[in-house]
Design a binder for these strands. Structure first.
Length: 596
RNA sequence: GGUCCUAUAGUUCAAUGGAUAGAACGGAGGUUUCCUAAACCUUAAAUCCAGGUUCGAUUCCUGGUGGGACUACCA
């Protein structure tokens, strides 16, 4: 790594010039900004205390010393307090030959001490289909999995399905009353959508009952509780918890419909899981640990015998962990899931990909586990991401403003088809091939749009405008890739061969060196994306690289270049760029079409 | 009330405490006998306010203001 070498040389230089030992933190090396001459920049301000001189003089002195002692540095200039070091073209081409010959681009990213890391993502409710918010969740979770795996960690993708509770009973009850035995087969509906339909029917009927009661003079609060449908739903939950046969069978049947539907969505989205947990299993474990903790006086009971934890010492509140009837709440099952996972995998880190609306929940979860003495709770990390909002505000299922995941994916593919057919570049390909290309482009646009944004920020999705295929978009990067592939097809046709052996002989021009510099940043970007959990970093890197390559492609002929060494260099640059783009996008879960 | 997140061109997004705050879309204008114009080039346009720390602040700290979330015996 050039930065590290430079740091060492500069340390030596300061030792010799000023007879001082410098802390590494004070040697700040950065990539030289565009518009300035040079490759790496040393910020000299922090070193003035050693030189006891002006920034200009200090830069000058260090620059001169470096040029005379380190051959890779071919020159320098000092502007204000910035020492811009110029690295010789030979060093760059040398670096690039090495990179071009490497079979595994990510080899440098492997950490010396791999960890076992669990990533929990998706976490759907089984009473309604997935929506745009879940898409962000799934894409982030899956991409984190790929990025952390690329760094050599053993990463386990898990999903926790919220498959129990009153909300599930609502769909079940509505289906029982109004469904007339409708099934996914009989209706032709996707299972999760069918179940979601009955959830909506329940809410509609329930609302009518409340209104009727209020009109008879009842208070709204009371009406809400005494509406017949709600009573029936509660009865059903009691029966479910008691394991009553009929209810369990209905529950299993409708759940199986939902899971089949989810599986389809996951498949089209290109995400999967190594291990799926069900809340209906883990809440029992949660109950046990809560009772155990009560025995050793970590928790306390209220007058009504419900069980609580007092976290006011940690700046949090009291929190209920088990109801007075012994039934579990959300926190109970998450405690159980965490403990179960630790037993099964012995993870050192567990990432919860869950929206920022649950920040408080995860603070409490961690605090309770710590209180209970689980050391590994330190490794729990809430990967808190922002909401996806519509231009008119938050998505609300009650107001029907939810963007359905399946619909959106279909629309994306359709738009890709329209754009593509209009451009008319694919006429020679078969229907199947074309469909595959449309799919990759449509999904690529959607995925990139979501992943390029800093995860912790809320983002806006405008159905009419957000999905573009020009500019800073997935298809832009895919297009760059497809063009490179096209160059190599052309090379094959015309019999131009790429000869890596000639790389050493090429002299790189300014633009070629710019490309090399950018390519060099790939592994650093992967490392950083892993350490700060940010796929967005990688997405933006891929864009920068594609942008740079497009300029290069526009300004220079690759195959048309007559000098064999230069042509080879340009071909190598194209090849490595395509590999980096493809690998980078792969880390985001985005596929690349060979042509478009 | 308390806690957390957030505020950058008209819009959607960038910027390890560093130089002249980058892109894209949209606006205005231009490039195609040449490896894919889903591209490339030119151009106008922005750091919420007030303090503080620093040689240097969009970035860190404090206080405001605006937006969002949480503060459920829902999940």
């Amino acid at each position: 790594m050039m930065e590290r070498i430079l740091k060492g040389k500069i340390r030596e230089a300061i030792k010799v010039l000023y007879n001082s030992d410098v802390n590494n933190d004070l040697i700040q090396i950065q990539v030289t900004r565009k518009d300035f001459k040079g490759d790496f920049t040393l910020v000299v301000f922090p070193l003035l205390r050693f030189s006891k001189n002006t920034p200009e003089k200090t830069g000058e002195t260090i620059g001169n010393h470096l040029v005379s002692t380190f051959p890779a540095i071919s020159g320098f200039n000092v502007i204000k307090g910035f020492l811009n070091l110029e690295i010789s073209g030979k060093w760059w081409t040398g670096f690039f030959s090495e990179m071009a010959s490497q079979s595994d681009l990510l080899a440098k990213c492997r950490v010396p001490d791999p960890e076992v890391i669990l990533v929990e993502y998706s976490s759907p409710n089984t009473n309604k289909p997935l929506h745009l918010g879940h898409i962000r969740n799934n894409l982030l979770g899956f991409s984190l999995y790929r990025i952390l795996s690329a760094c050599g960690h053993k990463v386990i993708k898990t999903n926790i399905v919220n498959d129990r509770g009153i909300h599930i009973c609502k769909s079940m009850l509505a289906w029982q009353k109004y469904g007339n035995g409708e099934t996914p087969e009989s209706s032709g509906m996707k299972g999760d959508h069918l179940v979601g339909k009955y959830y909506v029917i329940f809410e509609k009927e329930y609302k009518q009952q409340i209104e009727a009661l209020v009109n008879k003079g009842m208070q709204e609060e009371e009406a809400r509780n005494s509406a017949p449908l709600m009573k029936e739903a509660r009865d059903m939950l009691v029966k479910w918890e008691a394991g009553e046969k009929e209810v369990m069978e209905l529950w299993r049947m409708m759940n199986s419909w939902v899971y089949a539907g989810f599986d389809e969505t996951y498949r089209t989205l290109g995400v999967d899981f190594d291990k799926i947990y069900y809340e209906s299993d883990t809440y029992k474990i949660g109950r046990e640990i809560v009772l155990k903790a009560l025995d050793i006086k970590i928790l306390y009971t209220h007058d009504d015998s419900s069980i609580w934890v007092d976290l006011s010492g940690e700046g949090l509140d009291q929190k209920l962990l088990l109801r007075n009837d012994g039934t579990a709440v959300y926190m109970t099952q998450d405690l159980g899931t965490a403990v179960l996972r630790q037993e099964e995998y012995g993870f050192s880190r567990c990432l919860y990909v869950v929206g920022n609306e649950q920040n408080y929940h995860f603070q409490v979860l961690k605090a309770v586990l710590r209180r209970m003495g689980y050391r590994w709770s330190n490794g729990l990390f809430h990967f808190s991401y922002g909401m996806v909002e519509l231009p008119e505000g938050k998505m609300k299922s009650r107001e029907g403003t939810v963007v359905d995941a399946d619909d959106l994916i279909v629309e994306m593919k359709e738009t890709a088809r329209e754009v593509s057919l209009e451009l008319g570049k694919l006429s020679e390909y078969s229907g199947v091939e074309k469909e595959e290309i449309f799919r990759k482009i449509g999904l690529g646009a959607l995925k990139y749009f979501i992943l390029k944004v800093d995860p912790k920020k809320n983002m806006t999705f405008n159905p009419a405008e957000s999905i573009d295929f020009n500019g800073n978009t997935g298809p832009f990067i895919q297009y760059t890739y497809a063009r490179i592939k096209s160059v190599f097809r052309k090379a094959e046709q015309t019999g131009i061969e790429y000869d890596p052996g000639l790389l050493g002989k090429a002299r790189a021009g300014e633009k070629e060196i710019a490309m090399i510099k950018l390519l060099r940043r790939f592994t650093q970007t992967v490392d950083e994306a892993a350490s700060i959990y940010s796929p967005a970093l990688l997405a933006n890197y891929c864009y920068d690289l594609a942008k740079e390559y497009n300029q290069f492609y526009h300004d220079f002929s690759i195959l048309g270049e007559s000098d064999p060494a230069t042509r080879n260099l340009r071909m190598a640059l194209s090849k490595v760029t395509s590999e980096v783009l493809s690998k980078g996008m792969w880390l985001l879960g985005i596929e690349m079409p060979e042509r478009m």
